[in-house]
Amino acid sequence: MPFRTLWVSLAAALMLQACATLGEGGASRLGLIQQRQTLRCGVSGKIPGFSFLSSDGDYSGLDIDLCRAFAAAFIGDADAIEFRQLTAPERFTALRTGEVDLLSRNTTFNLSRDAAGGNGVSFAPVVFHDGQGLMVKTSRGIRTIDDLNGETICVGSGTTTEQNLNDAFEARGIAYTPIKYQDLNQVVAGYLQGRCAAMTSDRSQLAAARSGFAKPKQHQILEAVLSKEPLAPLSAGGDQRLGDAMRWVVYALITAEELGITKANVGDWLDKANKQTELTRLRRFLGVDGDLGMKLGLEADFVVKTIAATGNYGEIYNRHLGPNSAVPIPRGINQLYRDGGAMTAPPFQ
């Protein structure tokens, strides 16, 4: 009897070992996504305008629309998504262990995250140029960072925010005390309750938080920008196919805005491309001619499906962050290059 137990345990051990080594092959996650017909997208779910779980149980925001664009391009169905809500410290582990296929979660693109010796992930193009800022109560009479000498600052832990704050204050030789909370909601509560003279986070998040305050006008975001925070979607490193597919979906959104192709008129543009053979660039972009989609491992018409699902980049931006949205953030550097911003895309050739 004991010997039988031993054999069973040994057999179990060998089986588990097999499980551990299986799946080591070089197959791309893109194939897995298409096979399972669902995209697992890691999001924050707590930042109005970017990803926010509304009262009716639906997610919405710029980050969410990017997930939808990816799902439309990869699978052909913008709704075939399982959202996973992840905290800042959880996100990279969730990505590398394969719990999610990709992250669209307010993540700053920087060297140590991108490099193989760091977090080793690969970033898609920047979808929102953000920067860390400071918010203070107007009644405190604080105008610049130097006015914050010796003050207490509320900050969220587990992000680059802490380091940026320290860099900015140390460079100016200003003393400060950081109070670190794990969650942005607690940062806001600590700040509103008067524990800190200022709270710091990305300016987009400050604007989003302020939109929920009882008296938004009594709070002011300082002019100073402590850091560059280019936010981008990302996938696990070492998977070129998925990385490339994501990159060109983002570029497709930007190119569509450049060309004036919108969710409403993408059908007309497709008709036009079908009829007029001389519009070679448009025909390539919309997949009428050439094999651009195939090269990425996607359908030929992935651009059409993406734009039909979410609209172009400008439409996505205006829907969630535009002047008539709940969280208005001036488009600034996030405008097209043509209009004086930093958004541009390489050619679809």
Binding site: P89, F92, S112, G118, G120, S157, G158, Y181, Q182, Q186
Partner: peptide
């Protein structure tokens, strides 16, 4: 304690883990 901003061991570990990626 991490929930209310007291810098205990877990809070320091949390920041260290995100900054180094060594979960």
């Amino acid at each position: 304690a991490i929930a209310i901003g007291y810098s205990d061991l877990y809070s320091v570990s949390d920041t260290s883990i995100t900054q180094t990626g060594r979960a």
